[in-house]
């Protein structure tokens, strides 16, 4: 019976085992890196049942974030406005526009509009808007220039590492309370002197901020 495998098949088998192992290790390392850095949906627009445009309503019409996200200063959730808020204006403005058909239908049938979530932390992590907004962290530090977005997308990965970047050194990002809702705020070139002043003024405790139990409770 002739030999099926030539002698150099031994080397092939050896390299296949070594290469396979290396490939396996690379896969284990690369997949989580990919999942954490590339596959976090940053900058990917999310489709919504109504083509609501933040740039039109905030930058052009000058509506404050709090007109619609009413609980952002007092609660954990910023809240997404009910149809009643849209109808405050759209009962008179652009009535019958096809772009607003879903809003009118929601109002007529008394069923909420099913907006798709854009920012969604896993349930084991706790987040609170009021704690940030009242302590000098601006909307744009976490959500980017929402006032220039025609669609809606995440501007930051919202990973634990990203939260910790700020929780370890909040003085790098803090701004005066009066600038929190100012989307166009330009921080000074070196934010630390102002930041440290604000940390003291707002009574922010460095020791507390990086405890696991702040976010995992």
């Amino acid at each position: 019976m002739p030999q099926i495998f030539p002698p150099n098949a031994n080397a092939f088998a050896k390299w296949a085992i070594l290469g396979g192992g290396a490939f396996f290790v690379a896969l284990i390392v690369a997949l989580p890196i990919y999942a954490r850095t590339m596959n976090n949906a940053v900058g990917v627009p999310v489709a919504q049942p109504v083509a609501f445009a933040h740039n039109l309503h905030t930058a052009q019409l000058g509506i404050d974030c709090r007109y619609c996200h009413t609980t952002v200063e007092v609660a954990a959730s910023a809240s997404v406005p009910p149809t009643e808020t849209c109808m405050t204006c759209h009962s008179q403005v652009r009535v019958g526009a096809p772009q607003l058909a879903a809003v009118a239908a929601s109002w007529a049938t008394d069923t909420p509009i099913a907006w798709n979530r854009v920012h969604d932390l896993p349930d084991f992590a706790y987040f609170n808007h009021s704690a940030h907004v009242n302590n000098g962290v601006g909307c744009s530090s976490c959500h980017g220039r929402i006032d220039q977005m025609a669609g809606i997308w995440k501007n930051e990965p919202l990973s634990m590492g990203w939260c910790m970047d700020c929780h370890r050194e909040p003085e790098r990002f803090l701004r005066p309370r009066s600038e929190v809702f100012n989307m166009a705020y330009e921080p000074p070139f070196d934010n630390r002197p102002l930041g440290l002043e604000l940390v003291a003024q707002y009574g922010i405790s460095h020791e507390k901020l990086y405890q696991c139990s702040v976010c995992h409770r």
Binding site: S79, T111, P112, A114, P122, F124
Partner: peptide, 22 residues
């Protein structure tokens, strides 16, 4: 653990007739 059965603000829920937690 990322999607726990407890209700979070603004989630959808089959529990109520209008399909909303809120």
């Amino acid at each position: 653990m990322a999607e726990q059965p407890s209700a979070r603000a603004f989630e959808a829920s089959p529990f109520f007739a209008d399909g909303s937690v809120q």
